[in-house]
Computed example of a mutant assay.
Amino acid sequence: MSDHRDAGTSPFSGFDLTGRTALITGATRGLGLAIARAFAGAGADIVVSSRKEDACTATAEELRADHGVKAWAMPCNVSSWDQCTELAHRAEQVTGGIDVLVNNAGLSPLYPSLGEITEALYDKVIGINVKGPFRLAALIGEAMVARGRGSIINVTSIESDHPSVYALPYAAAKAALANTTIGLSRALGPHVRVNTISPGPFLTDISKAWDMAKFNAAADQAISMRRAGEPGEIVGAALYLASDASSYTTGATIRVDGGVFGTLG
């Protein structure tokens, strides 16, 4: 991975990830799976990580069969500091070095009221959405610095800018992750780039629980494109940030939200 480009002299190679290895958390479904498939299609070898080993194994097998790349199943509960430490060390050792880290795993449990949010729920949300991504980025980021190259992509949420009353711990966690991104970009620069993708509502597994009539009414009032996104619509931003196309982009947030301009719930 090139750490810089000379403006006007280097050819643009597009979103080619051949010869690179990406570790993606939450990679077995939703946006993480869409990103894993896109990266494999662009030539990257993939470390597939999520909580369930069987899901990781199935996804890794799919990527190998469909794209002819290397793929490893490495389950991890990213809310665990120790499991993140183990994942980072194992991924670095087994693959020979991670070029792209995508901190995509996230969780936003429902709660009946603010007063009924438990400490366990709050800590779990912070753990998965902030603590784990920080630990992985710190360890893998330092290894990237030693090699003189790398890209880290933190997936946040439009909730960090437009918090809803039904997801306040999640909104706080994602805002913290966005802020962490900026600090990491300074700490790990100039050769490692750290950026954020901030998705809006997407039609993933989680949307099956939505009241679609209520959502569509809200989307008409708060989203410029007046709809939710399809999972494949996240991959352009991810490919951009993972590849040399973004060689002068760091500490940035790319919103992929259809133009959200208000609170959806």
Results as ranks from 00 to 15, higher is better:
E159L: 11
D66R: 08
I254N: 05
A22V: 03
N104S: 07
E119A: 13
A137Q: 13
E61Y: 10
I152Q: 13
A38L: 06
N216S: 15
C56V: 05
A218W: 11
V145I: 04
H89C: 10
A178L: 13
R20G: 07
R5F: 11
T28E: 01
L110M: 07
A7F: 06
T28Q: 01
T9M: 15
A242L: 10
A217T: 06
N104I: 04
V69R: 14
F12H: 03
G43N: 08
T156Y: 11
F134L: 15
A27M: 10
H4G: 07
T249M: 11
T196V: 15
I46R: 11
T25M: 02
L139E: 15
I126F: 00
A176E: 06
L239E: 05
I35L: 00
L188S: 11
G262M: 04
A187D: 06
G259W: 12
E230N: 02
S79C: 01
T196D: 11
L177T: 01
S10D: 13
A209P: 07
A252W: 04
G43H: 09
R90S: 03
D123W: 00
L31V: 05
T263G: 01
S13P: 08
H89A: 10
G150S: 10
A238S: 05
D123T: 15
Q221E: 14
S113N: 00
A138H: 14
P109G: 09
A167H: 14
